[in-house]
């Protein structure tokens, strides 16, 4: 026993002085608490937005609010035409961006030779994703509204929103395609399938859930955008429902903006804006949650 202790004592261990260690532990505690506070701030923000908008928004929403058109100079009635308009615009944008986005992703992952073309295209997709939304609005105004003569219309707005959604769909689809193991491409080719058959029958089906996630995410993004439709599609008030792709529409996000900045009855309009915001928020958040849910389920099946 004794001999052991003396042996240990004779080789003093390299240690920091006790005070230093204590201080070290304290720094760590404070640091970690700060990080936790940062994370908590996110939850707080989300909670605050949902709480305040939900609290006052619920009071404004009833069946009539969802199904009627605005009445009495925007002080009463509902927002049904704006909901319908947002659905049209979103649908149009996805119909335009989906085939284009998936095709681009297929080219980038399946066909393109490595090298400068891929890099160029990848950089342009990333940059397109970073273009401010109001700039898309100006582009749509110049090209679709004026140059192509579509006027301020559903189709101009849809195309503008579609360009905005394009990079989202491309990146999500690319990620999904890259995740498809190379080995099953080889298996298909080795059976005498051509490249296109391989893509159509093996690669795309395997990547479908991932592509779907991207599409749903972009639906959420597109439905909530305002700036691109300011000059290309949206109107504060349109009588009745749109009857052609070339009509102006009301849209939920623009409706909120217009209610808060135009008109002469701020009190009443704010109440309706609360209701509209809650509808938009619920729409967009549920869409995102669906996308997140699909993705998490997909990840699980991949691991199994």
């Amino acid at each position: 026993m004794n001999t052991h202790e003396s042996a240990i004592a004779s080789v003093p261990p390299v240690r920091q002085p006790a005070r230093g260690r204590k201080k070290r532990g304290l720094t760590q505690k404070i640091g970690f608490a700060a990080l936790a506070a940062c994370m908590a701030a996110n939850i707080f923000f989300l909670g605050a937005i949902i709480f305040f908008i939900g609290l006052k928004g619920l009071g404004a929403i009833n069946w009539a609010f969802l199904t009627q058109a605005p009445r009495d100079a925007m002080t009463a009635g509902g927002v049904a035409p704006a909901i319908v308009g947002t659905l049209y615009l979103t649908l149009g944008a996805i119909m335009f961006a989906l085939p284009l986005g998936v095709a681009s992703a297929v080219y980038l992952t399946e066909y393109s030779p490595k090298g400068w073309i891929v890099n160029l295209l990848r950089v342009s997709v990333n940059n397109l994703a970073g273009v401010p939304s109001v700039v898309f609005g100006l582009f749509g105004l110049t090209v679709f509204v004026k140059y192509m003569g579509f006027g301020v219309s559903i189709i101009s707005g849809s195309l503008t929103l579609g360009i905005l959604a394009l990079p989202v769909i491309i990146s999500a689809s690319q990620e999904a395609l890259v995740a498809v193991p190379q080995s099953i491409r080889e298996a298909s080719l080795a059976l005498g399938a051509t490249q296109w058959e391989t893509i159509r029958k093996v690669v795309l089906p395997a990547a479908l859930p991932g592509i779907l996630t991207g599409v749903i995410l972009s639906v959420g993004r597109v439905a909530g955008e305002t700036a691109p439709i300011l000059f290309t599609a949206a109107a504060f008030y349109v009588k009745g429902y749109p009857d052609s792709p070339f009509s102006e529409v009301m849209a939920l996000p623009y409706h909120i903006y217009a209610l808060m900045t135009e008109g002469t009855h701020p009190e009443e309009q704010t109440r309706i804006a609360y209701g509209s915001s809650l509808i938009l928020l619920a729409l967009v958040l549920s869409v995102s949650m669906i996308a997140i849910f699909i993705r998490q389920r997909q990840r699980k099946t991949y691991h199994a």
């Binding site: 099953i184 298996a187 059976l191 005498g192 399938a193 395997a206």
Partner: peptide, 29 residues
């Protein structure tokens, strides 16, 4: 050529499809 010269790989690489579809795939294409 690959229809005449088939290949079996190091790691089994079935398609994420049913057993039947896997075997039928080559016939379909």
């Amino acid at each position: 050529l690959r229809k005449r010269v088939g290949m079996v790989f190091q790691k089994p690489n079935p398609f994420p499809k049913t057993i039947f579809e896997n075997v039928a795939y080559g016939l379909e294409v």
